[in-house]
Amino acid sequence: MRVLKSNYADRALELGFATGDDLARISAGWHIRAADRDGWFAPVHGEILCRISK
């Protein structure tokens, strides 16, 4: 549902990164993956630290 109705969806449409059809296909793909016994999801998060050396 987040792909279809959220700030993410609103911005994707507003900025032209996706169409309503694109978001519907993405949502359908997530539903197919969720229904697959062997499907899994791993959110990867990271951090970049930058330092300016003088």
Rank of each mutant, 00 (worst) to 15 (best):
I26F: 07
L15G: 04
H31A: 13
W40H: 10
D36M: 04
I48A: 09
I32M: 09
W40M: 09
K54P: 15
R51P: 05
G46A: 02
R51Q: 06
I26L: 13
E47I: 08
A35I: 03
L23T: 02
R11C: 09
R37D: 13
W30N: 14
V44T: 03
S53M: 15
Y8I: 08
A34L: 12
K5V: 05
A24P: 00
R25Y: 04
A35S: 07
K5L: 06
A34V: 08
E14W: 04
I52M: 07
D21R: 05
A28K: 06
R33L: 15
P43C: 00
R25M: 11
L49P: 01
R25L: 07
Y8S: 14
D38K: 12
C50E: 15
I26E: 10
D36W: 02
W40F: 15
D10Q: 14
D10L: 13
D10R: 15
F41M: 12
P43K: 00
I48E: 10
P43E: 00
F17G: 10
K5P: 02
G46L: 03
A35V: 04
F17L: 14
R25I: 04
K5G: 07
A35L: 06
L49S: 07
D22W: 00
P43V: 01
G39V: 03
D38A: 14
A35K: 05
G39A: 03
R37P: 10
R37K: 11
N7K: 13
Y8A: 15
L49H: 06
P43H: 01
G39T: 03
L15T: 09
I26A: 15
D10S: 14
G46T: 03
L4N: 01
D36A: 04
D36V: 02
G29H: 04
G46V: 01
R2G: 08
R33E: 09
H45E: 07
D22H: 02
E47W: 06
T19I: 02
F17P: 07
K54R: 13
D21V: 05
S6M: 02
V3C: 05
A9G: 01
L13M: 02
V44M: 04
N7F: 10
A18H: 05
L13Y: 00
L23Y: 00
S53Q: 14
R2Q: 13
V44H: 04
S6A: 04
W40L: 12
H45P: 06
R33A: 14
A34S: 13
W30Q: 12
L23M: 03
Y8D: 11
M1Y: 08
S53L: 15
M1V: 11
D36I: 02
K5Y: 07
A28D: 14
A9Q: 01
N7W: 09
D36H: 04
I26R: 08
D38V: 07
H45D: 07
E47D: 10
